[in-house]
């Protein structure tokens, strides 16, 4: 169980409190400015030396007000984190496998933490089983440069965490038929 202990402090996505919609945020920005700020931030951060100053000027506020509002949204869980969206294919990751696992309910959290600690794993979600057609409750995505490499990576993960007895399935993507965001997802970045 030492591996389990090692991963206990891995950062898990914070459970958002969704308070943002109920609380009126800091005295500093008006409701309208907050809306404008959110719309701007949803487009991404400007790539200039002082991005928050650039945004503040657009909404007639000070950079401090903008920074304070962002800090508040982070606290409230409305902003999950700051980061990048990378196009895997442009980086040469052409094989995309969805690996689905049938993990005993009481172990799913621990196994998910092990899997999400692997650099090869790019997304890891718990989802419901749908018996009898679908027994799998843990989904992870693995992007690799080709199918054989991804298969070897999955085999290595199985060995590393002694998951040989766990039922799993590997679903390689054959083709993408639609890649644009759903009408609503334009507002955010979500994987269902």
């Amino acid at each position: 169980m030492s591996q389990l202990a090692n991963v206990l402090n891995i950062t898990k996505a914070p459970q958002p409190s969704c308070q943002a919609q109920r609380l009126t945020a800091s005295k500093s920005l008006s409701a309208r400015q907050q809306q404008e700020l959110r719309a701007i931030l949803e487009q991404g951060l400007p790539q200039v030396a002082q991005p928050y100053l650039a945004i503040a000027e657009q909404i007639n506020a000070s950079p401090d007000q903008v920074l304070a509002q962002i800090a508040l949204w982070q606290e409230q869980g409305l902003i999950k984190r700051f980061g990048l969206v990378v196009k895997h294919r442009q980086l040469g990751f052409k094989a995309n496998a969805m690996v689905v696992w049938d993990i005993a309910d009481e172990q799913v959290d621990a196994v998910a933490k092990l899997l999400s600690s692997c650099p090869e794993v790019s997304l890891c979600y718990r989802r419901p089983r749908r018996l009898p057609d679908w027994r799998y409750n843990l989904f992870c995505m693995i992007h690799g440069t080709d199918r054989a490499i991804v298969e070897a990576q999955i085999a290595a993960i199985v060995d590393k965490f002694a998951l040989q007895a766990v039922n799993k399935d590997i679903l390689f993507s054959v083709k993408a038929y639609k890649q644009q965001g759903a009408r609503y997802t334009k507002k955010g970045n979500c994987h269902g």
Binding site: W73, I79, L84, V86, N189
Partner: peptide
């Protein structure tokens, strides 16, 4: 960004918090 290696860069909003709902089907 110009080469589209990165498609987005900045804060990630919680779509569910924003009032949306999603599923994988």
């Amino acid at each position: 960004m110009t080469n589209k290696v990165l498609t987005r860069f900045g804060p990630m909003f919680d779509a569910v918090c924003l009032g949306g709902a999603f599923t994988l089907a």
